[in-house]
Design a protein around this nucleic acid. Structure first.
Lengths: 184, 184
DNA sequence: TCGCACATGTAACGTGTTACATGATTCA
DNA sequence: TGAATCATGTAACACGTTACATGTGCGA
């Protein structure tokens, strides 16, 4: 009976309906058209996800017959849904998160406005920057371990990861400046 | 009977045993200790993957009893396995690859030494750089579409993706210089 | 009337996850 | 004797993928 942890897709959907009530069809369009698309826009993913979110009491669907088309179900988060969503957003950013799932961390950041606290976002970005910088050091350590006789490609591939993470760290430090000095 | 397309994990394993024959246990260690870890190191993933690669005729396992421990199976790619691996490496780099699975593209690059042709790698990096640069432009277009009243977080999250891709593009252009001017 | 946009779903299938099972050898 | 390392595997489960099924209203 212990509810399963929601998936990234679940959280993406939950986040979107925090902004405005949406139907499965709406959600599919948003997913397909924006960078969120990585989290799938196929009906075989979206509709079952909505069904389990509803079953777990995180969202509530209401039939909308105001249009003459086939009626659609408009979903909204429940109180419980808002709660677990905020908890997800507020989770600590760990080294593991950064090295294994930076995309999910970024997804969390993208929805951080839901918390309505620039203090929380500041903490989040501070942790994020610190952990990415630590991970960059890890990667530098790994680079040293690559034997000299190894093909250049291996080293270069690692450097690609390094550069992307350096860029992410710089971004986090820069983003931090957007949330310091005001109380929005 | 039409063989399924191998997964990224399959290709990662196939690539590793191109360097030296390895057992499932060896492969798990490499996956766990290096950045390749994203492609899973759990026995429930590795052993079934090896089993299906063998079933499809891409790898061949041989019992090694030279150690007094429990015998291990040392895997090597077959001719067919080498062939599909080279085909995978030689695939064109598309916009779709770059925007949906840059990690897989980087995995391909990491194993590019198997082709033993700096001409092929040059082409690969040239395409990669071009497509990432195109994707960066797409993202700039998306950024313009974000309504002004949207929370800053959404725009910043998109900018994180932008910066990471810009870094990847710079990396590709720089890596390209390693493969121009010599015939290795 | 043909096809497209709207709109929701299901079924088969493959793959990864976690947890479990098994067993030999080495070393403290 | 017990723990750690070597070594291979299976079982239950959840999720995403692709493809299919169904049906309305609107414009060309």
């Amino acid at each position: 009976m212990g509810k399963k942890a929601p998936t990234r897709l679940d959280y993406a959907l939950l986040g979107l309906i925090h902004q405005a009530p949406m139907s499965g069809y709406d959600l599919r369009k948003v997913m397909a058209e924006t960078a969120l698309g990585d989290y799938s826009s196929s009906p075989g993913a979206i509709y079952p996800a909505l069904a389990r979110l509803e079953k777990n009491g995180y969202i509530e669907g209401e039939e909308d017959r105001s249009r003459s088309l086939r009626p659609r179900k408009l979903y909204q988060p429940t109180t419980g849904g808002r709660k677990i969503f905020r908890e997800w957003l507020s989770q600590e950013v760990t080294r593991y998160d950064v090295s294994h799932d930076l995309d999910e961390v970024m997804l969390r950041f993208a929805f951080h406005s839901v918390l309505g606290s620039s203090e929380a976002t500041r903490r989040f970005l501070e942790q994020l920057a610190t952990e990415i910088e630590g991970y960059v050091d890890d990667l530098k350590g790994q680079r040293k371990l690559i034997p000299k006789e190894a093909p250049i490609h291996a080293r270069l591939a690692l450097e690609a990861g390094l550069e992307q993470n350096r860029a992410a760290a710089r971004w986090a430090r820069k983003a931090l400046r957007h949330f310091t000095g005001d109380g929005a």
